[in-house]
């Protein structure tokens, strides 16, 4: 781990507090996509960001939102670079992020450990509306690649589930 200077920590906090463009209840820090902030010189900062999915179109909006936030904080020269490794995992979403997802009506991803990929349906997914664990899968892909569409068999409401990756 590279140790950050006080300035880098401050800039990291500002960049990390930018909301996710598709799930605005979450900050980029809570989503776990921030990979580092480096001051390259006076007024020159590089931010490393990792995409949730390789093809996630939100990454470009995230990059320009970070640039704007840091410009407003007086950093004239901001570069946002994308890093792929180590790959992002839904385990990188913070506890606070999970709580906010549920509040927003999206069932948070289940913790999964090192293997990755589709999780066998052993752990129940809880309906974010009524709390029932009696839910069924409607489609493995929903409004975005990172979500699956489910329905609660108790309250009959459909809901998104942030699927494990």
């Amino acid at each position: 781990m590279v140790t950050m200077t006080a300035l880098e920590e401050e800039l990291s906090r500002i960049a990390g507090s930018v909301p996710d463009p598709e799930l605005p209840v979450l900050t980029l820090e809570e989503l776990g996509v921030m990979r580092g902030v480096q001051v390259l010189g006076p007024g020159r900062v590089e931010v490393s960001l990792t995409p949730t999915y390789t093809g996630c179109p939100a990454i470009e909006a995230m990059a320009s939102d970070i640039e704007r936030a840091l410009h407003e904080h007086g950093v004239p020269d901001v570069t946002v670079v994308t890093v792929l490794a180590p790959a992002w995992s839904t385990d990188d979403i913070s506890e606070e992020g999970r709580r906010k997802l549920t509040e927003f009506g999206i069932a948070p991803p289940r913790p999964q450990g090192p293997a990755g990929g589709p999780v066998p349906l052993t752990l129940a997914i809880r309906c974010p509306h009524c709390g029932s664990t009696d839910t069924e899968l409607l489609s493995r892909f929903s409004s975005t690649a990172c979500k699956a569409l489910r329905r609660c068999t108790a309250c009959r409401e459909p809901f998104d589930h942030f699927k494990e990756l």
């Binding site: 390789t54 990755g116 892909f141």
Partner: peptide, 13 residues
């Protein structure tokens, strides 16, 4: 390796 480690999880779906 970097891309493959990421994409293999997507392709599993």
């Amino acid at each position: 390796a970097g891309l493959a480690a990421k994409a293999v999880k997507e392709v599993a779906y």
